[in-house]
Design a binder for these strands. Structure first.
Lengths: 168, 168
DNA sequence: TATTGTTATACTCTATAACTATA
DNA sequence: TATAGTTATAGAGTATAACAATA
């Protein structure tokens, strides 16, 4: 309950229409009811939470999320092209170039010519890259498991299935 | 199945270890199995999908996601402060200033002094802002409903509940 | 003509430091 | 001393246009 500057009393929760003239309110606890009813809002908040789990976990590997994703895809798809990575990860080609250059410079990736297509370049993990991605994947799996440990195994499976229904 | 440049034949799907010497592969369909097993990956993909639903829907209102969120919070919390918005929406104070200025300039928000705290400023919707947020909220609700219409009502409720369990 | 990889570049979003006025 | 709002600015992320080499 907040006192109006003029002496009257008002509840912020009454303010569903534009507040009149010079009424002033104080908000004690924020009401996010509408936003929390939106799928988009909830999925964004959850995404931010999982991003922070990722960042704590892969601090010691010095990998950004997209870099980790690139290495993981190359690990499962030796010879994948830059363009295929872009399509899979929603990254634009000009923004992928520097990322791959950096991973090559750090000794995790190498480029080899594509077997059929002279325009394309295949990407491969180095031994060092293979070790890194293996360690990072294990670490991330366990960090995620801890972060979602308050959901039952069934709930976790349901969540993945529902999310995939959403974006596929 | 891809022919190696040297004449041998190899499957990209065999390449779970670092590819040897100068073997080259072509990837036909990308295998994203590991990434798709991660909660973070799925929730990020779903978030991107819902972001694009939002953007198509609120094109005609010329509102960004965070601007819409600000207006929605002010709609439900007359007199809310800039700092409260920052905490609710994970936006840093210096980045909130310009956004509020813009919404004030466009005639959707106005600032009034805070009843108890001389440092703070309360935010209020103008009549024009009230009309805008009401129209945008209705539109977004219906766009979201359409975007998730292939999930049953029960699945939609489950999804929201599971997401909130994840980030709260 | 279309596509891959690339450069250059602009724009947006996010983050940090520091200042002022009020508590 | 701590907090709300603000300014300036730096850095990261994302976008478009255009070019050379190849299909």
């Amino acid at each position: 309950m907040a006192e109006v500057a003029g002496g009257a009393v008002a509840h912020a929760s009454f303010a569903h229409s534009p507040a009149k003239a010079q009424e002033v309110f104080a908000v004690d606890t924020v009401n996010a009811q509408y936003l929390e009813s939106l799928v988009g809002y909830n999925v964004r908040r959850a995404s931010l939470a999982m991003v922070s789990v990722f960042m704590k976990c892969t601090d010691r590997f010095d990998l950004k999320i997209v870099e980790f994703s690139v290495l993981s895809l190359v690990a499962g798809n030796a010879g994948i092209t830059s363009r295929q990575l872009c399509q899979q990860l929603d990254v634009l080609p000009p923004n992928m170039v520097g990322m791959i250059d950096a991973l090559v410079s750090r000794g995790y990736l190498e480029r080899r010519p594509h077997p059929h297509d002279g325009r394309a370049t295949g990407l491969y993990l180095t031994v060092q890259g293979h070790d890194l991605v293996e360690a990072a994947q294990l670490q991330l799996k366990s960090s995620e498991a801890q972060a979602v440990s308050h959901l039952s195994a069934q709930e976790q499976a349901q969540l993945l299935a529902l999310l995939q229904k959403l974006y596929r």
